[in-house]
Amino acid sequence: MPSGSFRADPFGLWRDGCLHVFAEAFDYQTRLGHIDLLVYDRDLNLLECSAILSKPWHLSYPVVFEADGETWMLPEAYKSGTLTLYRAGASLSEWEPFCDIPLDGPAIDATPFFHDGKWWLFYSPSHSRIGRRGHLHVAWAGHPAGPWHLHPRNPVRVDLGSARPGGTPRHQDGMIILPVQDCRSTYGGAIRELSITRLDETSFIADDRTGVGAAGWMAPFTDGFHTLSTAGPVTLIDVKRMDATLAGKTRRLRGIVRTWRSR
């Protein structure tokens, strides 16, 4: 990555014997993210890397999934004012907007999951700082394009430590396990697993499990554990290191000033 930038929010799928990883690429100078595609062979050697989706607003959390013979991506873009579902074209580097998904406002880290014959969408609302980090909302639909129905108990969970989605859900022991972000000490400080024991159109019951922080072997990237996703036999994570040097602080400040001046 170039100086003054980082990648985060990795999600992946396998195609033609290669692992395709989609990730946010953030630039501190513009304070905007776009979506990169990194392609690896079976031995996880990097074959290519390219920017595949860029907009005038920030993009992140590019969840990719397959449904009805199509490949879909649902990147976060709440500053655009909506949540847009994209469909892949002839290759996984070609994406076109398919439809907008109207919810109760632009969604943060929207995470789709097929369960009990329906598509479920876990997300955090963007209406407030506490909502973005500590509220979990749910919606359901018969197809990823909708129409989507809001869960009557939204927010189904209010907790800075275990509400904002942070990765790929899975079925395990009769439960849905949803990775969520622990934002109590800092944004993306750790990952916890939310065990959802009941989910239907009228009810939601869940308990959080032990959190997972950045381990010592990840040094110097031990200031946060932000995403936990899976692609077949491969687990994808992102961890972070805060640059406390004068150069690092200056770079972030310049980006903030540029953002303020452009408003």
Rank of each mutant, 00 (worst) to 15 (best):
W95K: 04
T71M: 06
A110R: 07
R192K: 03
L19R: 00
H149R: 14
T222C: 14
P75E: 02
P2E: 09
Y187T: 12
T71K: 02
F26C: 08
T235H: 00
P10H: 00
Q172H: 06
S195F: 13
D182G: 08
T71I: 11
S162I: 01
S203V: 00
T186K: 15
G255E: 10
W95E: 00
P152R: 04
E94L: 11
R153I: 12
T186E: 12
C99K: 01
D100Y: 12
M1Q: 06
M175L: 15
P155Y: 06
T230W: 02
I256W: 13
P233I: 05
T168N: 10
N154L: 09
P233A: 00
V63W: 03
A145W: 08
L47P: 07
V234Y: 09
I196K: 15
T202Y: 01
D223V: 14
R164Q: 10
N45G: 13
I130G: 11
A139L: 04
I52H: 03
L44H: 07
Y187H: 13
D207H: 14
S262T: 05
P152L: 07
R7A: 08
G4R: 03
A139W: 10
H34I: 05
I205K: 15
L85M: 11
R31Q: 15
R153Q: 15
S229A: 03
T30A: 13
V21L: 01
H135A: 02
A141E: 07
L246E: 08
F221T: 12
G167T: 03
I191Y: 07
G142S: 04
F6N: 09
P144K: 01
L246Q: 14
L85A: 11
G131N: 02
M73D: 06
E201R: 15
Y40C: 07
A25V: 14
Q181W: 06
P2F: 06
M73K: 01
G216K: 10
L44R: 11
E66Y: 06
L103H: 04
G161K: 08
M242G: 13
H34W: 13
V158H: 07
G17T: 05
S124D: 08
P152T: 01
H171I: 10
P179D: 00
G166I: 03
L136A: 07
W119T: 07
H20A: 05
S229F: 09
K240R: 14
D68Y: 14
D159C: 02
P102E: 12
V64E: 10
A90I: 10
H58N: 04
L59T: 04
D223T: 11
Y28I: 00
D238E: 01
S185M: 14
P102R: 05
Y61P: 02
P75S: 02
G213S: 13
C49A: 00
G33P: 02
A139Q: 02
T84D: 03
E193H: 15
F11N: 00
H226W: 09
P102G: 15
K249W: 00
V234D: 06
E96Q: 07
G174C: 05
A244V: 12
S5M: 04
L253E: 13
G167I: 04
L136Q: 01
P155C: 06
S185H: 13
F114R: 03
T259V: 13
D27Y: 12
R184N: 06
S93T: 15
W72P: 04
G232E: 03
E201D: 14
A219Y: 15
P169D: 06
A163G: 05
V239I: 01
Y78I: 08
L83E: 03
F122K: 04
T71V: 13
R42V: 14
G248T: 09
P147K: 09
A90N: 02
C18F: 11
T71D: 07
